[in-house]
Design a protein around this nucleic acid. Sequence first.
DNA 1: TTCTTGTATATTGTATACAATATTCATTGC
DNA 2: GCAATGAATATTGTATACAATATACAAGAA
Lengths: 230, 230
Amino acid sequence: MKDIDFELDQSSFSDRVYNAILELLINHRIKPGEKLSEEGLASLLQVSRTPVREALKRLASDGLVVFYPRRGAYAKGISPQDITELYELRRCLEVFAARRAVGNIPEKQIKRINLMIESCHLADGGDFIEAELLFDREIHKTINTYCNNTRLKEMLVNVDHLAKFMRILHFDREELARENFAEHENIWRAMIARDETLMIRLLEEHLDNRKKCLLDHFHMMYSGEEAVHS
Amino acid sequence: MKDIDFELDQSSFSDRVYNAILELLINHRIKPGEKLSEEGLASLLQVSRTPVREALKRLASDGLVVFYPRRGAYAKGISPQDITELYELRRCLEVFAARRAVGNIPEKQIKRINLMIESCHLADGGDFIEAELLFDREIHKTINTYCNNTRLKEMLVNVDHLAKFMRILHFDREELARENFAEHENIWRAMIARDETLMIRLLEEHLDNRKKCLLDHFHMMYSGEEAVHS
DNA sequence: TTCTTGTATATTGTATACAATATTCATTGC
DNA sequence: GCAATGAATATTGTATACAATATACAAGAA
């Protein structure tokens, strides 16, 4: 008999704790600079310190957490320098990935995303924000899926997590979503038209805009201070 | 009184075990596909399983080790696909880093490297191989140091480890060193002349050559097989 | 008060213990 | 002989124990 794979949740405590803490960081339930006590997280998540420690070490590899010897783990502090560095790296990696993905995306996926764009055009207010988020995720997922490079995929996921973590606060969510959508739509149209040069230009502009936006917010919020809870 | 930092070896067992296993992998004392028993490494390195596990998890994040749930850690297997993917990623990251480093390198460091090039020209045989290795390391270290992007630096170190790990066997060490040297010297000259366009072209050619060289060796050694100890 | 200094407490880094799952290997049946 | 089965063994994943270090806080000196 062929091995019917029941696939009963292979994920370990370590993995689940990793994802849980990642969520806490990305949703800003844990803020930059905040201490991550092993015991505290262990009792919060109802496991022992061991899987918590493994998760924290992994998050440290990801760059979201910093370990100070014998003093424990802290959520990474964020400085304008960090934002600048991250977005420059992101630009490098995403442009590379997008170039590789162009011409690799199956017709079905193209249709799927075109439909999501339609939805955005039809929706408004809260619905638009929701629809735009789905479109945003899907376009990034598509580039990730079809760039055909395993390690690059991991790095893209990583910079994505870092970017989310650094997106500390946004005032006007709808305005942001509108800007994001306009930029993404243009990038997407260049992608499916296979106009690589245009796509790269638009993608670079997009990321530069997002970087600038983040930096402006950062400076407005923390003018004078060096870093957020460094 | 100013804090005179005695700096008495902050490194933990975890760190030292990590470096030890990394060495074993890079020097091919542990071969691709080989099992990495926690108990075995623990007794080899005279520590408990805990720091070994932390080191293995970190190496897994680095992509040098693969974990199979409840079955343990294995040195990553190598396929031509892996080599191709790595060198394409390396090209992306190193070109980016080199562009950022150009014009950032202090005069003193330029002189230092120029001297190392001199040494290579003067040396021959085993001495040349030795001198070329030093020059190779120094040029990469220089790009890493002056690219001014923390996360990028970590990624460069990572792809460098992966590249070393995949460099399974080389027959003619001197011929390889000569080729490497010629390419590196040209790249370096373009860098200090601040001819970015030429530098990028030479760097890309260099990495493509190294990739091809590795793939050729791989195919010669394992023609027919799918991967090395996958 | 403010700055030391010392002690109690808490937390980390590592070792060990233990339960759950893989692997090994001998035995059985074909 | 070879595949299937199952007990014995080994290894992993997680919990706990323990020693070393850091933190917090109280008492005393400047």
